[in-house]
């Protein structure tokens, strides 16, 4: 059943996000620390475990795959609800600090990657 896939995804999401909330609380930070990352790892472990048990079927995967494919539409909706007006009308300092480091970071990336190949 498709709902099993969705439910496992929901379980991973909720458990991971909750871990992130508690980790944030523990570190004394007013933010979720790594919730999505924990959720992803939980989902991957669930998947492996189900595979071993032989319970992973096509229907199940369809339940997760639907949300996987909804990712880009969600991102489009997210872009459409950003506060773009404030961003482009906040003066030159905002533009400077918002843009220069990003461009610089892009050109640092190849060196970071090279570092990993050594």
């Amino acid at each position: 059943m498709i709902i099993y896939g969705v439910a496992i995804l929901a379980f991973s999401y909720l458990t991971g996000q909750l871990c992130g909330e508690y980790l944030g609380e523990f570190l004394g930070v007013k933010a979720n620390v790594g919730g999505v990352g924990f959720a992803m790892i939980i989902l991957l472990l669930c998947k492996e475990w189900l595979q071993k048990k032989g319970w992973l079927d096509v229907e199940f995967e369809k339940g997760v795959d639907f949300w996987n494919k909804m990712y880009i539409p969600v991102i489009i909706a997210m872009s459409a609800s950003q506060n773009v007006k404030v961003a482009v009308s906040s003066g030159f300092l905002a533009v400077l600090v918002g843009m220069v480091p990003v461009v610089a970071a892009f050109f640092t990336l190849p060196y970071l990657i090279k570092l990993s190949q050594k």
Binding site: L9, V36, A39, E61, V64, D65, W67, M70, Y71, I75
Partner: peptide, 16 residues
């Protein structure tokens, strides 16, 4: 649709 709940939920799904 573009809020953080859907965003994070679908990102987790991409891990599959």
């Amino acid at each position: 649709f573009g809020g953080s709940m859907f965003r994070d939920f679908t990102i987790v799904a991409t891990a599959m």
